[in-house]
Design a protein around this nucleic acid. Structure first.
Length: 493
DNA sequence: ATAGGGTTAG
């Protein structure tokens, strides 16, 4: 029996439960940040995208702009997918006669520079924060560590943590938990576990620490290791929480151990856990994705019967499952039910339905749903565009895909790495010389925007250009590739 | 930015 394999555990401490916020995000009552700020940010982003870097400082110094940390942060977020422009904007404001950057804007700038792997620029900003005596904060260093980890430089991430005190930050339990989480989320769980074992006596590790490590093992599909962490936690007198249980539960689903997940869920009930909306959402999603849609729906009903109130994430899980394993029409019914009950769908909800339509080959309905999304005040995001563009191209409507892509250029939703990859792949469908020229153009454009194409993408485009007789353009891309630090492969031109 | 549930695809 599985339950016998579970360590003997005390009844978990239940996390503090927040009352459901069904109507708190009503569309008629906009949240605090002034609606005007959003339009200002869009206007500034557009201006930055269009202007010559040399005259940008002057333009930004004009009294038309009321600079505030919030506005600067908004603009940086809009320019997120155009790193060089974002950095230009941030630097140009240094020359403003009165405005001084806030720590949070610095953090965004550090993030953007580090994401482009310009660590020198990122550290220069850290130094500048220090001389202005506004940082770096532990968050700044966490951002840097995260960028190192996701660039495959986990050791440098650890070094950032180990040398925190050199930057005027305290090494405490919170920063320790953060670095462990960063390592785990970039799948360096073994390294996280080792760091944990090395330093656990120095910090008063808590349930959060153990939960982070347990979650890490689940992420790389090793629930047995998570259970071991669980056991060790109990042995050391740290009470598991509902979060711990929810982590293990999801771990079983990730390894497709449905029976174990079900048994674990029953065990949670037996141990009188106060099963919450996260537990139920995990169950609904887990069974649904595994194809057990009826069980998903039954669990949804059970939740309601138990007076656990679903939220948008719960509905999103169900909508996703119905799109994938049932059919879009039923997903739409659940979506409408959610709306009727007063829940405000978010971009995840809309994207799930849009993907459902795309998958069912209903491109017109997907596009109409996208328009509805916009009308209801939920701006289509880059994921929305990526899905629709991908399916339009797959369906052979490459012109329409390109058209949508052009629409993104105005700055309200700039294309990201995935968008470029999707579109470049689409340029191979028709095997037309002109399409390959477009692919080459897109490749150069993405590099100019701070994205580093994979070697695979370079090779594919190079091959395509050579095969269609565009040798000159291929040469240009090859030289760009070597400037990007990617080894140019042998190619006869 | 100290932990858990919805954004990927056959």
């Amino acid at each position: 029996m599985l339950t016998r394999a579970l360590p003997k555990l005390p009844k978990p401490k239940t996390s503090f439960s927040v009352p459901p916020r069904t109507f708190s995000s009503c569309t008629h009552c906009p949240s605090p940040p002034q609606p005007a700020a959003e339009e200002d940010a869009n206007a500034v982003a557009k201006l930055v995208l269009q202007s010559d870097p040399k005259t940008l400082s002057e333009a930004l110094a004009k009294p038309t702009f009321q600079w505030s940390p919030h506005l600067v942060d908004r603009v940086l977020k809009l320019l997120w997918n155009h790193g060089p422009k974002a950095v230009q904007f941030f630097n140009a404001l240094f020359r403003h006669p009165t405005y001084v950057h806030s720590p949070s804007s610095f953090d965004h700038a550090v993030d953007i520079a580090a994401r482009m792997r310009d660590y020198q620029a990122a550290w220069a900003l850290v130094v500048r924060m220090r001389s202005l005596r506004i940082g770096p904060t532990p968050k700044t260093l966490a951002i840097l560590a995260e960028r190192y980890a996701s660039a495959g430089k986990a050791h440098r991430a650890v070094n950032v943590f180990l040398s925190m005190h050199h930057h005027g930050c305290r090494q405490d339990l919170a920063s320790f938990n953060t670095i462990l989480d960063i390592l785990c989320k970039s799948r360096r769980v073994e390294m996280a576990h080792n760091l944990f074992k090395t330093f656990r006596s120095r910090f008063n590790c808590d349930s959060v620490t153990y939960n982070i490590i347990a979650n890490g093992w689940c992420l790389i599909k090793r629930p047995p290791m998570a259970l071991q962490v669980f056991k060790e936690m109990v042995e050391r007198g740290i009470m598991p929480t509902l979060v711990t249980y929810n982590i293990i539960l999801k771990g079983y689903f990730m390894t497709r151990q449905l029976n174990e997940a079900w048994e674990f869920f029953l065990e949670m009930k037996r141990r009188k856990c106060e099963i919450d909306v996260v537990t139920y959402t995990t169950m609904i999603y887990g069974f649904g994705v595994a194809g057990e849609v009826k069980k998903s729906k039954r669990i949804f009903d059970e939740m309601v019967g138990e007076r656990v109130v679903p939220n948008v994430a719960t509905y999103n899980a169900l909508v996703h499952v119905l799109c994938k394993k049932d059919n879009v029409e039923n997903a739409v019914l659940v979506f409408e039910e959610m709306v009727v009950k007063g829940f405000v769908p978010n971009s995840v909800s809309y994207n799930a339905v849009i993907r459902g339509f795309c998958h069912a080959g209903e491109m017109e309905r997907a596009l109409r749903f996208m328009a509805r999304m916009e009308k209801e005040g939920c701006q289509p995001n880059v994921q929305t565009y990526n899905v629709v563009i991908r399916y339009l191209c797959d369906a052979g409507d490459i012109e329409k895909g390109l058209e949508l892509f052009e629409k993104m250029a105005d700055g309200s939703c700039l294309p990201n790495l995935d968008t470029y990859n999707v579109l470049i792949s689409a340029m191979f469908i028709r095997k037309k010389s002109e399409d390959l020229m477009v692919a080459g153009k897109l490749l150069l454009e993405m590099i100019n925007r701070g994205f580093l194409p994979r070697k695979f993408t370079f090779n594919r485009v190079l091959n395509g250009l050579v095969l269609t007789g565009n040798q000159d353009f291929a040469r240009e891309i090859l030289s760009m590739q070597s400037r990007c630090g990617r080894l140019p492969r042998q190619l006869k031109l």
